[in-house]
Design a protein around this nucleic acid. Structure first.
Length: 608
RNA sequence: GCGCCCGUAGCUCAGUUGGAUAGAGCAGCGGCCUUCUAAGCCGCUGGUCGUGCGUUCGAGUCGCACCGGGCGUGCCA
C-alpha cells in the first residue's frame, strides 16, 4: 500500500472516532477528500483538504475540524508531524518506515503490481480500428489503433476481460470500387469513376494476375475478385514492401485482435434481415414514400430518421450492417460494449445508440470513445489525404524511418505509441510528417526506455561484478533507505495502482505515460546526483582500488538500494507494458556523430 | 443555424471528481563525463491559463455569453 492510501485510511478511521464521540456528524464518514503530494516541499509529504470539504456538513470552520483530525493523526506511529495551514489544509510529514511498505507489495506482486484483483471486472467487447480494408493502414489510423489498444491494456489491468474486435467492412460500394479498380489496373486501364488510384492497387492487380487470374472473370459484387482483394489487404501481398497487410501492420505495433468480424458474413447469413425484423416488431422502422426504409430511434435518442435501405428497395446502407453487427454483439452476452471512433463519426453515435437500445442493451454500458482527428502536415503545410489520391502516408513509412534512425527494429513502433499516447484522446493532433520521421535520439520515448535500461544495468552489474542478487527488503535493510529522493520515489511507486485505476476508469491511457515520465525523471536525477556526491549504489573504482576497501563499504546500504532499484524497475516495466512500449534491458550508447568537433572551424575559417 | 471537441510558455502537450506560488518535453542560453550507461544531470530565460461576467473560503478546472480553430449535421463509410 502506498503512503497515500495509508494516510487515507488513517483519516477515515479518525473520522470514525470523531463521529462516534459526537464531535462530527455521522455523514462525515462519507466525506470526499483528496490526499495528494503538495507541490511545495515545506508542505510535507502529503496534504489533505478533508477539513475543508467537511466544513459545510459539520457546520464548523475548516480549521476547527482540522484541529480535531490533527490530534488523532498525530498519535499514528508512522506519522511524524501534522500541521494545519492556510484555510484548513492538513500537511503531514511521515516517518521513513511509512514509505518502505510499498516495496514489500511490489516484491509480492511482481509484474502484476498495480493490477486490480482478477474476477472483479466486466466482460468487455472493445471494437477499434475497423478501418476499411480498401487500403493500407495510414498514419492517421494509428491513433485509433494505439489509443484503442491502450484502453484495452489498462482495462485488462483492472481485471476486465477484454475481447478485441476488428469489424471488416468487406461489403458494399467501397469494396466493389476497389475490385473494379484492380480489374482496370490488370487491364492497364485507369480506375473507374470514384475508384482507387494509389500505387497499391497496381501491386494488388499484379498479384491477382500472377496467382488468381480466374478471379478477374468474376463480375459478382461480392465475388471472387472482391474476396481476393480483401484478403490481400488484410494479410498482405507476399514479398511486397508496400502491402504488408493490415494485420501485419497492427502486429508490428503490438496490437492483436481476438476477432476479425466480417460485415459480408452478416449479409450472407441473413443476419441483416433478421435484425431488421426485430426492429420491425418493435415498431421503429419507417417506410418512406419513395420506397426507402428508415430507422426511427426512440424519443430523444436521435433527431431524424436514418435510412437503412435505399429507395431502390434493395441496397442496404452501412447502417443496416451496423444494426445487425451490434445486435450480434448484444447477443454475445458482454457486460459492456466499447467502440473507438474518430470524432468525424460522432454524428453517427446517436443512431447507433438508438438501435442498440432496441435490442435491450443497457445504455450506460455502451460507450463510444471519440478521439479527435489527426491532421497531417508536411513541413508545416497541410496534407490532403484520401484513399483515392496518391499521397498516402502509411504507418510503416513513418516507423521504418525511425527504426533506421535508432538502429533498432521496433523503435518506430515504440515512438509512434509514445506519440499518440502522450495526448488525451480529446486533444486534436497536428502531426508533421517530416518532423515525425526525423525523430532521432532526442525522441522522448527513448528517455523512458533509457531509464529502464539503466535500472537493469545496475542490477546486471551488481550480479556480474559483485555477485549480489536483489535481496528482500528486510527491516534491517530498510533502515538504510532514508535518502529523501529514495523515499519520494517510493511515494511515487505507491501511487501507481491509483494511476492505473484512474487511467482505466477515464479511458485515459496517457495518464500512465505521464506517471512514467515523472518516475524516469526522478530516478535519472537521483542517479546523477549520487554520482556527483560519490555515493553510488555500487562500489566504484575509487573505493575498490584501495586495499581492504570492503571494510569501508556500506554493504547493507547497497543491498537496500538494490531492492529499491528492483522495485522501481518492476513498476517501470509494468507501466511500459500498459503502454505497449518495449522495455529494453540495455540501450548502448550510440556512436558519437562524426564531424561534431569540426563545426567551429567553419566559423573560424578566414574568408577566402 | 444547431450539436460535439479543443484554446495553458516560442512549439508540442500535462494539469489528479475545484486546492496553496500553474508544470513537463522540445527550442534558446550557461554549466557537468578518469569512477554504477552523457539516449543523462543541474541552472537560467519564458504565462493577461482565448475574452468577459457569474457560482465560493478558493476557478486553468464548474455555469452563462462571446471570440477563434477542428469535426459533424449524407439514401458515403
Amino acid at each position: 500500500m502506498g503512503v497515500e492510501e495509508q494516510l487515507r485510511q488513517a483519516i477515515q478511521s479518525a473520522l470514525e472516532q470523531l463521529a462516534a464521540s459526537g464531535r462530527l456528524p455521522t455523514d462525515a464518514l462519507h466525506a470526499v477528500f483528496t490526499v495528494e503530494r503538495p507541490k511545495a516541499a515545506d508542505h510535507g509529504h502529503l496534504a489533505t483538504n478533508v477539513a475543508m470539504t467537511l466544513a459545510k456538513a459539520a457546520k464548523k470552520p475548516p480549521r476547527e475540524i482540522a484541529t480535531l483530525i490533527q490530534s488523532i493523526l498525530q498519535t499514528e506511529p508512522l506519522i511524524e508531524k501534522v500541521d494545519i495551514a492556510g484555510p484548513g489544509f492538513l500537511n503531514v510529514r511521515l516517518r521513513p518506515a511509512a514509505f518502505h511498505q510499498v516495496v514489500a507489495d511490489i516484491e509480492l506482486a511482481g509484474a502484476a503490481f498495480g493490477r486490480a484483483l482478477a474476477g472483479s471486472g466486466e466482460r468487455v467487447l472493445l471494437e477499434f480500428v475497423s478501418a476499411n480494408p480498401t487500403g493500407p493502414l495510414l498514419i492517421s489510423h494509428g491513433r485509433n489503433a494505439i489509443y484503442g489498444d491502450g484502453v484495452g491494456r489498462v482495462l485488462e489491468a483492472c481485471g476486465h476481460r477484454v475481447t478485441r474486435e476488428y469489424y471488416i467492412n468487406d461489403f458494399g460500394n467501397q469494396v466493389r470500387l476497389l475490385a473494379e479498380s484492380v480489374r482496370a489496373s490488370a487491364k492497364g486501364l485507369p480506375p473507374p469513376e470514384g475508384g482507387y488510384g494509389a500505387a497499391y492497387v497496381k501491386i494488388l492487380a499484379d498479384w491477382i494476375v500472377a496467382h488468381a487470374p480466374h478471379a478477374l472473370e468474376d463480375d459478382a459484387p461480392e465475388g471472387l475478385l472482391s474476396r481476393f482483394c480483401i484478403s490481400r489487404m488484410l494479410e498482405g501481398v507476399p514479398g511486397s514492401e508496400e502491402l504488408l497487410g493490415i494485420r501485419n501492420t497492427l502486429a508490428a505495433l503490438g496490437i492483436y485482435f481476438d476477432n476479425w468480424y466480417s460485415e459480408e458474413s452478416l449479409h450472407r447469413w441473413g443476419r441483416v434481415e433478421a435484425s431488421l425484423a426485430v426492429l420491425r416488431e418493435k415498431g421503429c422502422l419507417v417506410d418512406l414514400d419513395d420506397g426507402a426504409l428508415a430507422f426511427r430511434a426512440a424519443e430523444g435518442e436521435d433527431d431524424k430518421d436514418r435510412v437503412i435501405r435505399k429507395n431502390d428497395g434493395k441496397t442496404f446502407t452501412y447502417f443496416a450492417s451496423d444494426i445487425a453487427y451490434h445486435a450480434d454483439k448484444v447477443g454475445r452476452g458482454y457486460d459492456r460494449l466499447i467502440n473507438v471512433l474518430g470524432a468525424d463519426h460522432h454524428g453517427y453515435v446517436a443512431r447507433l445508440r438508438g438501435a442498440i437500445e432496441q435490442f435491450g442493451f443497457p445504455q450506460d454500458h455502451f460507450e463510444v470513445l471519440l478521439y479527435q482527428l489527426v491532421s497531417l502536415l508536411r513541413d508545416g503545410q497541410p496534407v490532403k489525404m484520401g484513399k483515392r489520391l496518391g499521397n498516402l502516408i502509411t504507418i510503416e513509412e513513418v516507423t521504418d524511418e525511425i527504426d533506421a534512425a535508432a538502429g533498432r527494429k521496433g523503435a518506430g513502433a515504440d515512438a509512434l505509441r509514445y506519440y499518440y499516447l502522450s495526448r488525451r484522446n480529446e486533444s486534436p493532433i497536428e502531426l508533421d510528417i517530416e518532423v515525425a520521421k526525423k525523430q532521432n535520439l532526442d525522441n522522448p520515448v527513448f528517455y523512458l526506455q533509457y531509464g529502464h535500461a539503466r535500472l537493469c544495468a545496475i542490477l546486471r552489474r551488481a550480479e556480474t561484478v559483485f555477485g549480489l542478487h536483489v535481496p528482500r527488503l528486510t527491516p534491517q535493510l530498510a533502515a538504510r533507505l532514508v535518502h529523501p529522493d529514495e523515499l519520494a520515489m517510493l511515494q511515487q511507486l505507491g501511487s501507481f495502482p491509483r494511476i492505473v485505476q484512474d487511467a482505466a476508469r477515464e479511458r485515459a491511457p496517457h495518464k500512465t505515460l505521464f506517471f512514467l515520465q515523472e518516475l524516469s525523471q526522478q530516478f535519472q536525477s537521483y542517479f546523477t546526483r549520487l554520482k556527483v556526491e560519490h555515493d553510488a549504489i555500487l562500489p566504484q573504482s575509487w573505493l575498490t582500488s584501495e586495499q581492504g576497501w570492503e571494510a569501508k563499504w556500506d554493504r547493507d546500504k547497497t543491498l537496500a538500494r538494490l531492492a529499491w532499484v528492483n522495485a522501481i524497475r518492476t513498476v517501470y516495466a509494468a507501466g511500459l507494458g500498459l503502454l505497449g512500449i518495449s522495455a529494453p534491458q540495455r540501450m548502448d550508447r550510440p556512436p558519437a556523430p562524426e564531424g561534431v568537433q569540426e563545426t567551429d572551424d567553419e566559423l573560424d575559417a578566414p574568408a577566402s
